[in-house]
Design a protein around this nucleic acid. Structure first.
Lengths: 333, 333
DNA sequence: CGATTGCGGTCACTTCCTGACCTCAATTCG
DNA sequence: CGAATTGAGGTCAGGAAGTGACCGCAATCG
């Protein structure tokens, strides 16, 4: 009964679109008798989707929230909104759900009709330009890689190593992991016949899917732990492939308690530690960046830019520019 | 054939989870014969969901992307990620999809199991604290109101009018609209027996749903146009209910071409207009705020803070603080 | 070439879906 | 309070479909 199944889905879709439907309305929409609607409602209930019903003149059917999540039936616009929202969340703009966002995104983009996929890509590129600083990754690449990891598909891309060499890679991807600041890809490099870790923001070409690869599990089994080890080893002078000198973190001392500052710093900017009573030191998660400086300036507390010297210079320059801008405005207006 | 329908959904779920499945695997998972799997695949195809198949030793079934979007089958984690992503997108952090995000959100939150709903609420409150400035709204309220509009449900809440009076409202909500900067609610106020427009950021209590209301259509029929008129009328001195003096927009003159600046300003911050060759003026969409200033400072071009004077003062103060911070850092380090 | 995998026809059996009829219960509104 | 509306659910008969078992065929990979 293909028709029955289709009708059940349609019924679910209708119930998700609007809250209240009378049996007669549903019957008209689905072109069956009201008795069949009642039976279909029973079927939905037996599938675990709680359909509430109220008798009487103000009654009707309504989809409640039960123990399990029914299939989501989205229209085009909604699907685009979901995809774009997931992409920004995955990009680290919404903390704490990055990996789950990527999983959901891989699921959604796999089944997204091509016409919608184009619009999602266009929209998310348009908005991602506003990410002030920090690692900027291509959401298309992220989605593609996540799907490739899940499906054990071989991928090919160009990669900028730490010493600025552009290299070509062919690998069996194993996992995509978010470090709290950056996205990393772990995979088995087929040309080099060894495990490698890549930073997504250093992938310089579109990621091409090459078809079925071999399913690999990172050494140790836990991708997050593996990548943590890799990053740490690299920082301690390990000349790992793709490693490279990266700017040091920025540190700013703030004249305020750590507890008052901490809730006001986005986790992807950095962390805060107390430094005596009434003072604290904020450190960026990754290399120093100007957004961090600006965030600190907006706190409206006195501050000391500790290091690196580049950050001190930028603070000086930005401060001067703002002061000059203020004076110019006063003079002009 | 309730079992058949359930199996079709399960099959769809499996195909969304992983890319490649052999018929035998699927048969084992679903506890039916392989022949039935083939028939089910045919059914999915006839429903418009293109299942690709490849024969041979490396073959298998795979869900392709077709003309229409199949129902999304999410697990708990993914559903949370989707909901949180939609909430931040709806809050205006991702421009251009606010209204669609809210629609999708209303759909999702309606069917979200309670245990997940709590986690979504907690997570999105935690992250929304980082929204630097601009109108801050309660994502719970937004989702509730959007659902209430869709379902013609009466709502009750407290509202802070423009002149700082806290009032209680009972209304039939009609539409929730994003102005490009703020969320507004249009509805028929039952106590005052007239149409009213509300700013979501001025709703001071949790929104309570009071049960079935009367479905209302805003005067004129187009909610967006209606609310635009209301806002404009209010700005021009109309003493509308809930109106009030709000800070003026901020304006900054930048020493750069409008075309180079424009792609670097998030639309919810403001807009850019050319001001002679090599200069442009950026204006906030809503009242001036400090994030806007910071955004301008990050552009690394010379700037003049035009008005209001408060913004000039803040620029001066921030500039001084940064310079001082730089000097302190140099001295200390 | 052989192994694996999907495709699809046929047959017989079983299942259950559907519409039509009925009565009952709950709710709203005049 | 009573009429109207709406959902719940039992039963029946006819028809439609799903299912598993069997078969041979075609495509792909190594």
């Amino acid at each position: 009964m293909i028709e029955t199944s289709a009708r059940l889905l349609a019924l679910l879709s209708l119930l998700q679109m609007r809250r209240e439907w009378t049996g007669t309305e549903l019957a008209a929409r689905l072109e069956v008798g009201p008795r069949t609607i009642r039976r279909d409602v029973d079927k939905l209930r037996s599938l675990g989707y709680p359909v509430e019903a109220a008798p009487g003149v103000a009654g009707g059917y309504r989809l409640g929230n039960g123990a399990e999540l029914p299939p989501l039936l989205l229209d085009d616009q909604e699907a685009i909104a979901v995809a774009v929202g997931l992409r920004t969340a995955a990009a680290g703009q919404v903390e704490g759900i990055e990996e789950n966002s990527v999983r959901a995104l891989a699921k959604l983009e796999q089944i997204l009709p091509t016409r919608l996929r184009r619009r999602v890509s266009a929209l998310s590129h348009a908005t991602s330009a506003f990410q002030l600083e920090g690692p900027r990754i291509d959401p298309d690449a992220l989605a593609t890689l996540a799907a490739a990891c899940r499906d054990a598909q071989r991928v090919r891309f160009s990669y900028m190593t730490g010493d600025q060499r552009d290299t070509r890679r062919l690998l069996d991807p194993a996992a995509v992991v978010y470090s709290g600041y950056r996205w990393y890809l772990a995979g088995f490099d087929l040309d080099r016949d060894a495990w490698r870790t890549f930073r997504l923001d250093r992938i310089t070409s579109a990621v091409r899917v090459e078809g079925r690869g071999q399913r690999r599990v990172v050494p140790g089994g836990d991708p997050a732990a593996y990548i943590q080890r890799q990053i740490r080893g690299r920082r301690n002078g390990g000349a790992g492939d793709g490693a490279g000198a990266e700017p040091p973190p920025g540190r700013i001392r703030l004249h305020a308690d750590a507890d008052t500052v901490r809730p006001r710093i986005p986790a992807y900017y950095g962390s805060v530690e107390a430094d005596g009573a009434g003072y604290c030191i904020a450190t960026t998660n990754g290399p120093w960046n100007r957004s961090f400086l600006v965030w600190a300036a907006l706190l409206e507390v006195e501050l000391e830019v500790l290091d690196p010297t580049e950050l001190v210079d930028v603070a000086q320059a930005t401060g001067t520019r703002l002061s000059a801008g203020a004076s110019a405005g006063r003079a002009g207006g």
